[in-house]
């Protein structure tokens, strides 16, 4: 198990005058699959970005702990993996170039075996040297999982993880989620029943949409 812990307390987010959610508490520890659901516009993606440290909440605090020690925000990116429709990879590079550049920027090493294993697992091995520009939306989605997993993160955030994927792609994702959840934390934001069915607990964001008073 990863001994990673995420604590989010009294999280509120306001965009302009619009309250997205108010006083949301969320915590998870060590490993497992956690779900976040809510109708369109309920703030699932915003909440995921906040608890992953990408954006700041209007109110409340998010703490990431590893081995009992708080992780500095400067280092947080190396502990998290993130897959979402709005994560865009560089079109002008090939799939493998994208992954190689990202790993060098992160300052992490990966073996060719691991790279090939992930490309094989997500069915992109024979297209790994093609430019991302020529990928279909489903192939881009598969590549995002390789992007999220190559540095062996301790916590994974998946926003609509099965969007654009065919049935075999969805199976690969569910298999990956189950495997990763054995040792790491996986958080899924989705409206798909099949995505939420594999979660041990689900946070319903609509419940936190109170008035801004």
């Amino acid at each position: 198990m990863s001994s990673f812990e995420l604590q989010a307390e009294n999280i509120s987010k306001v965009f302009g005058r619009r309250l997205i959610f108010k006083d949301v508490d969320f915590s998870c520890k060590d490993n497992g699959i956690y779900g976040i659901s809510g109708p369109n516009g309920s703030g699932k993606s915003t909440f995921l970005k906040i608890i992953s440290g990408v954006i700041s909440p209007t109110k409340g605090k998010v703490i990431h702990l590893f081995g009992g020690k708080a992780i500095e925000s400067e280092d947080l990116h190396n502990y998290i993996g993130f897959v979402a429709p709005y994560v865009i990879l560089y079109d002008e590079f090939s799939a493998v170039e994208n992954i190689r550049f990202f790993s060098k920027i992160r300052g992490v090493n990966f073996t060719k075996e691991k790279l090939d294993f992930l490309f094989q697992h997500f069915g992109l091995l024979d297209r790994k040297d093609d430019l991302v520009k020529g990928y279909s939306s489903g192939m881009k989605q598969r590549l995002k999982f390789i992007f999220a997993l190559i540095h062996s993160p301790k916590i994974l955030f998946f926003d609509e993880p099965t969007s654009n994927l065919d049935n075999s792609g969805k199976e690969k994702v569910y298999q990956t989620v189950k495997e990763e959840s054995q040792k790491n934390i996986v958080i899924i934001a989705s409206n798909e029943d099949s995505d939420l069915a594999i979660c041990s607990s689900v946070l319903e964001l609509q419940d936190y949409k109170k008035t801004n008073n």
């Binding site: 990116h77 998290i80 994560v87 865009i88 920027i105």
Partner: peptide, 16 residues
Amino acid sequence: ERGTTLTLQLIASPTT
């Protein structure tokens, strides 16, 4: 414009 700002946020610290 390409929408890769979030990707950068996910791979590196602001200082980097």
